[in-house]
Each structure stands twice: as structure tokens, then as C-alpha cells.
Amino acid sequence: MKITREDIDHLAELSNFSLEDAEKESLKGDLENIIQYISELSNLDTDGISPTFQVFEMENVWRDDEILAQDADRESLLALTKEEEDHQIKIPKVL
């Protein structure tokens, strides 16, 4: 499958990061190679096979609907952000 510059731009947008022009060029080649490799899967017959999304054997692990003791409190979590004011995290303008 051929990967175009538009494909790279679209995937970068989905991935939520910007890319330099030089990065785009090398990613185009890398992704094309990788996608070609994983496309081998189309040779495998999987008709009637159900998918596996996880390998944990147990289902429906329940617990009581109550708040468990937490390792971190509000103060220590807020202390992790670079910009805090009045117990709130500051961000740049949205639009």
C-alpha cells in the first residue's frame, strides 16, 4: 500500500502531534514498509474465527461500589502540573 503525504498528515492529526517536513518524509517510507509487512495477515484464513482482544481468563470481576483509599491526594496531584492557580490547572486559550 502506498502511503502519501496526505496520509501522513491525517495520521499525525489523529495522533495529536505536529511533524517537521523531514520527519514526514522519513515516516512515509518507514510506515509504508511496516504496513506492507503487517498486510501479510491478509493471506491468513480467519473465516469463522472469533477475535481475541484480551487473554485474561476471568470475566466479570466485581467489587463493591465504594471509594477506595487513594495513594495520592488532591494537593500532591496538583503539584505535578507546570501551571497552577487557585487549585486549578492553567491552560492556554482554547480557540
Binding site: 495522533s15 502531534f17 505536529s18 520527519e23 515516516l27 510506515l31
Partner: peptide, 17 residues
């Protein structure tokens, strides 16, 4: 995310998407 991820992180995130 552009500055913080390594090139291999970006490749894998893009393949995933």
C-alpha cells in the same frame, strides 16, 4: 507531543491510529 515523544514512539502511535 511532537517535542516529547521519540521518533519510534511517533511511528508506533501512527501505526496504531
Amino acid at each position: 507531543r511532537a517535542e516529547g515523544f521519540m521518533p519510534e514512539n511517533k511511528r508506533r502511535i501512527m501505526i496504531g491510529n
